[in-house]
Nucleic acid binder design. Structure first.
Length: 567
RNA sequence: CGGGGCGUGGCGCAGCCUGGUAGCGCACCUGCCUUGGGCGCAGGGGGUCGCGUGUUCAAAUCACGCCGCCCCGACCA
C-alpha cells in the first residue's frame, strides 16, 4: 500500500492523558483514537495488526478441532437469570431494555449462550467432545477503565468452550487449549509466564493464566525461577519467613495490659518491644452478610480471595467501624479472638502451633499478652495469607519473585456449573442421562497487541514482532522526487508484494527524517531505504529491532527481508 | 463509590490568582526553497475558552451546579 493514500495520523507529541507506553504509542502511532472512557476506535493500523493476531488465534484454535461460531453480543436476560449471573455480575454488566420493556444485556462472556446451544442440540455421548469458539466483542462496564486498551469497556475476545463426557475428557480439552495458547503467544512473539490462577468459588477446579510481565499490568504473580512454580498472587502459596522471636514457653494465661493510643500492629510492636511476627492481626470481615474474624500473623496481609474461597463466599468486605463496635464493644486497633462467640474465627496457617502472642483485648486501648490459639480461643485454620516479598517456595524453600503482569489468556475448568444449572444432558453409552462437563478459555485480542508494545518499544516507537505488525516492511525512498529513487522504490515494492510480504511504500513527498520517524513509530520491523547508493545498485536494509542498518544489493533486498521474517 | 488533577483551534500548552485585545509551539493550507533523522523563509485558515446558571457595565478569568476525561484507591467472570 502507498502511504500517501493511507490514514495514519501520527502525533509528534504524547497526548496528555496517556500514561502507559502502549497507550501513548497506540495514540501517537495513529493506531487508535478514543471515543469515550474505555471505548476506542481502532483505526487502520490497529485493525491490520489485530487481524493478524486473530488470524494466528484462528489457525491454532482450528488446529485443535475448535469450531468457530459467532454468537450475539445482545443477550436476553433469561439465560443469565438461569445461571444466576444476572445478579452476580452486578454493575459490571451493561443492561438495557427493548421497546417492550424486556430486559437485555450486552454479553460479557458466553458460557450461558453456548450452553443454550448445546442443550438444545447435543443428545448423545457420540457427539462429544466439542470445542466451540468465537472471536467477538465483549462488553463490561468497568468501574475504572484505564491504561489505554488494557482495561476497557468494549474489547475483542477469543472465547472457547469445551463439552466433554467426563473429567478425563475435560483434561484433554484443557491440555489442548494449554498447548494451543502456548503456540499462539509464541507466534505472536510474546514472552509470557503460565501461572496457576484462582478458579473462584464458582465451581471451577483448575485454571491457568497466561501472563506477560509488565509494570503496566494489573496482576501480581509469584514465580520461583528454580522450581518453576508460578501462580497468581491471589492463589499463590509460600513458606513465610520464620517469626523473628521465639514464643515464650509454657501455657501462660492471657493477661490484659494498657496500650494507650496504640492501634496498628507497628505501634503495638514498638510499645511492647516484641516484633510484628509476635503479634496477632485481627480483621473483621463481612462475607455474604455474615461477620467473620480473620486472624493473621502481625506482619502478614490477608488475601481476601483466599478468605472468600475458605468461606465459599461470593462477596466479601471489611466490616464498617459501626459494625465492629457493635460486635466487639471496641474499635479496630484493639480487637482480638479471645472471648469472641458470635462469629466464625478463621486463622491463617502461620498461626498454627504459635503460643503466647499479643492480640487485642476487645477493650479500647487494651491488648492481651500470652494468647495461644487452641487454648485461649478456637479457630478454623486455612491458608489466608498473601504471599509477601521474602517468602520462599513452599516445598523447597527456594526464593520466590513477585512481579506485575498483564493477563493475555485464561483457561478454566468450569466443571458442571453451567451444564447443571441450565439443564444440559446427553445419553451415555448405557442410555443413561449424564451431564457433560465444560471448560472455558479466553484470550484478550487487544491485550496481545498491548503486551507486545509494552515488551517491545523504545524512545522512537513500537518494535513489533513481524507476525503481528501491520506491515512487514516499509520501502522508503529518501527523495521521492528523484525519478531513479522513485522507480527503484516502486520496483522493490512490487517485488516485496510478489514474495508475499505485506509491504508499505512511503511515497509521501516528505523529508526523509519525517519518513524515518514515522516508520520507527508505527513499528514496522524492516525498512528498505532507497537513496543515492541506488545508482550503485545498493539499498539499505534497516532492522527496527536493534536499529542496525546494512547495505545490500537492491535485487536481493526483498528476499533478505523474507528470510529475516521466516527466521 | 472515596481521594487528587485536568478541560482554552487537530495535538501539546500559556493566559485565570489580580475580570476588559484569546496567545505560543507543533500540525494544516498556499508559494518559494530544501531532500539521509520530525528542514528554512513568507503568507494564510481554523477556537461556542466543556455545559448551564449567577455576580458584574464587562467573565476564559469570580461563585454555584452539572458533564467529560486522566491518575491513585476500592472493585475487577
Amino acid at each position: 500500500m502507498r502511504w500517501s493514500k493511507l490514514f495514519i495520523p501520527t502525533l509528534r507529541e504524547n497526548p496528555a492523558e496517556a500514561e502507559v507506553a502502549s497507550h501513548q504509542l497506540l495514540l501517537r502511532a495513529g493506531y487508535v483514537r478514543q471515543l469515550a472512557a474505555g471505548i476506542y476506535n481502532y483505526l487502520f493500523l490497529a485493525q491490520r495488526s489485530l487481524q493478524r493476531i486473530i488470524h494466528i488465534v484462528r489457525e491454532e484454535m482450528d488446529a485443535i478441532g475448535g469450531q468457530e461460531m459467532l454468537l450475539p453480543g445482545l443477550n436476553p436476560a433469561e439465560v443469565w437469570q438461569e445461571s444466576g449471573r444476572w445478579t452476580v455480575m452486578g454493575d459490571n454488566m451493561f443492561r438495557l431494555k427493548d421497546r417492550w420493556g424486556r430486559d437485555l444485556c450486552l454479553g460479557m462472556t458466553h458460557e450461558e449462550v453456548m450452553t443454550v446451544i448445546a442443550r438444545g442440540e447435543l443428545r448423545s455421548y457420540k457427539q462429544l467432545p466439542q470445542i466451540w469458539y468465537q472471536i467477538q466483542t465483549k462488553f463490561r462496564d468497568e468501574p475504572r477503565p484505564k491504561s489505554g486498551l488494557l482495561r476497557v469497556r468494549q474489547f475483542l475476545m477469543k472465547d472457547s468452550y469445551s463439552f466433554d463426557l467426563d473429567a478425563t475428557g475435560l483434561d484433554i480439552s484443557y491440555q489442548k487449549h494449554y498447548e494451543a495458547y502456548c503456540r499462539i503467544f509464541d507466534r505472536c512473539g510474546l514472552r509470557y509466564t503460565v501461572v496457576e490462577a484462582h478458579s473462584g468459588a464458582m465451581g471451577g477446579s483448575q485454571s491457568h493464566e497466561f501472563m506477560v510481565a509488565s509494570d503496566a499490568g494489573e496482576d501480581l504473580i509469584v514465580v520461583c525461577p528454580k522450581t518453576g512454580y508460578a501462580a497468581n498472587l491471589e492463589k499463590a502459596v509460600s513458606r513465610p519467613v520464620p517469626p523473628l522471636m521465639a514464643d515464650p514457653e509454657g501455657d501462660l494465661t492471657p493477661e490484659e495490659f494498657h496500650t494507650p493510643g496504640r492501634k496498628t500492629i507497628a505501634e503495638v510492636a514498638e510499645f511492647t518491644g516484641l516484633p510484628e511476627t509476635s503479634q496477632m492481626k485481627s480483621l473483621v470481615m463481612v462475607a455474604d452478610g455474615q461477620p467473620v474474624l480473620a486472624l493473621l500473623r502481625g506482619d502478614h496481609q490477608l488475601s481476601e480471595t483466599k478468605l472468600a474461597t475458605a468461606l465459599a463466599a461470593t462477596a466479601i468486605r471489611p466490616a464498617h467501624p459501626a459494625e465492629i463496635r457493635e460486635w466487639f464493644g471496641a474499635d479496630a486497633g484493639s480487637l482480638g479472638p479471645v472471648g469472641v462467640k458470635n462469629m466464625r474465627i478463621l486463622a491463617d496457617l502461620a498461626l498454627q502451633g504459635r503460643k503466647n502472642m499479643i492480640a487485642g483485648a476487645n477493650r479500647d486501648d487494651y491488648h492481651l499478652r500470652h494468647v495461644t490459639p487452641g487454648e485461649d480461643f478456637q479457630a478454623e485454620f486455612f491458608d489466608l495469607r498473601q504471599v509477601a516479598p521474602g517468602d520462599t517456595e513452599i516445598h523447597t524453600g527456594e526464593p520466590l519473585e513477585i512481579f506485575k503482569a498483564m493477563e493475555v489468556g485464561h483457561i478454566f475448568k468450569l466443571g458442571y456449573k453451567y451444564s447443571e444449572s441450565m439443564g444440559l444432558r446427553v445419553l451415555d453409552e448405557n442410555g443413561k442421562e449424564v451431564t457433560p462437563i465444560m471448560g472455558s478459555y479466553g484470550i484478550g485480542i487487544e491485550r496481545i497487541l498491548c503486551a507486545a508494545i509494552e515488551l517491545y518499544h523504545d524512545a522512537d516507537g513500537m518494535v513489533l514482532p513481524a507476525s503481528i505488525a501491520p506491515f512487514h516492511v516499509v520501502i522508503t525512498p529518501v527523495n521521492y522526487n528523484d525519478s531513479a529513487q522513485r522507480e527503484g522504490a516502486e520496483k522493490l515494492y512490487s517485488e516485496c508484494k510478489d514474495l508475499g510480504l505485506d509491504a508499505l511504500l512511503d511515497d509521501r513527498d516528505e523529508r526523509p527524517g519525517v519518513k524515518f520517524k514515522d516508520a520507527d513509530l508505527i513499528g514496522v520491523p524492516f525498512r528498505i531505504t532507497v537513496g543515492k547508493k541506488l545508482s550503485q545498485g545498493t539499498v539499505e536494509l534497516f532492522v527496527r529491532h536493534g536499529k542496525q542498518s546494512t547495505d545490500v544489493p537492491a535485487i536481493e533486498a526483498p528476499q533478505r527481508v523474507k528470510q529475516l521474517i521466516a527466521g
